[in-house]
C-alpha cells in the first residue's frame, strides 16, 4: 500500500511546501509594506478592528509576513515561522468568512493594496484554505521531528 505519510515527509516535498508558503507570504507583503496607508484603509473596510487598532497592524502585519516567509524559506526558526504563517492564514480565513456572513463586500488586500487587484473574495478564501494544507503538513512534520 502506498505510504502517504512517507511521501509528505520527503525532503523535496517539504522543501517545495516551504518555498510555496514562504514565497506566497513574501509576495503578499511587498505592496502592503510600500503602501501602509492603503492597507490601513483595507483593514478599516473589514469593519472588524476598532479605529485605534488600524494603523498598528497595517504597519506590522506585512513585516511579520515578510520575515516569517523569508525565515521559512531560509530555514531559520522554521517551527515558529510556520506556526505564525498558519495563524495568519486562519485569521485571514476567519476575517473573510465573518464579512461574507455579514454580507459586507470589501477588498481583501491580500496581495495588493490596489483596488480590485487581489481577485474575488471567494477565490481568496479558497486559496487561503488551500494554503493551510502545506502549512499544516509542515507544522505536523516539524512537531513530529521535535518529539
Amino acid at each position: 500500500m502506498f505510504n502517504y505519510y512517507k511521501l509528505i515527509e520527503n525532503k523535496y516535498i517539504i522543501l517545495s511546501f516551504r518555498m510555496i508558503l514562504g514565497s506566497v507570504f513574501i509576495f503578499a507583503s511587498i505592496d502592503k509594506i510600500l503602501h501602509p496607508d492603503a492597507f490601513a484603509e483595507i483593514l478599516h473596510n473589514y469593519k472588524i478592528l476598532p479605529d485605534i487598532l488600524i494603523y498598528a497592524p497595517a504597519l506590522l502585519l506585512p513585516w511579520i509576513e515578510l520575515i516569517a516567509g523569508s525565515f521559512l524559506i531560509a530555514g531559520i526558526f522554521m517551527r515558529g515561522s510556520v506556526l505564525i504563517l498558519n495563524s495568519l492564514l486562519l485569521i485571514f480565513i476567519l476575517a473573510i468568512t465573518i464579512n461574507l456572513v455579514r454580507g459586507i463586500t470589501f477588498d481583501c488586500g491580500c496581495f495588493s493594496t490596489i483596488p480590485g487587484e487581489s481577485g474575488s473574495v471567494y477565490f481568496l478564501l479558497i486559496r487561503d484554505i488551500l494554503l493551510l494544507i502545506p502549512g499544516a503538513l509542515l507544522y505536523r512534520n516539524y512537531m513530529k521531528k521535535r518529539r
Partner: peptide, 24 residues
C-alpha cells in the same frame, strides 16, 4: 518584524502614525 516595521516607517517618506484613530 516590529523593529523592521518601525525603522522602515521612520525612514520612509510616508510616515504612518502607529497608535492613532484611523482617519480616512
Amino acid at each position: 518584524a516590529l523593529v523592521a516595521a518601525l525603522i522602515f516607517n521612520q525612514v520612509s517618506g510616508n510616515k504612518t502614525p502607529m497608535f492613532q484613530n484611523y482617519k480616512s
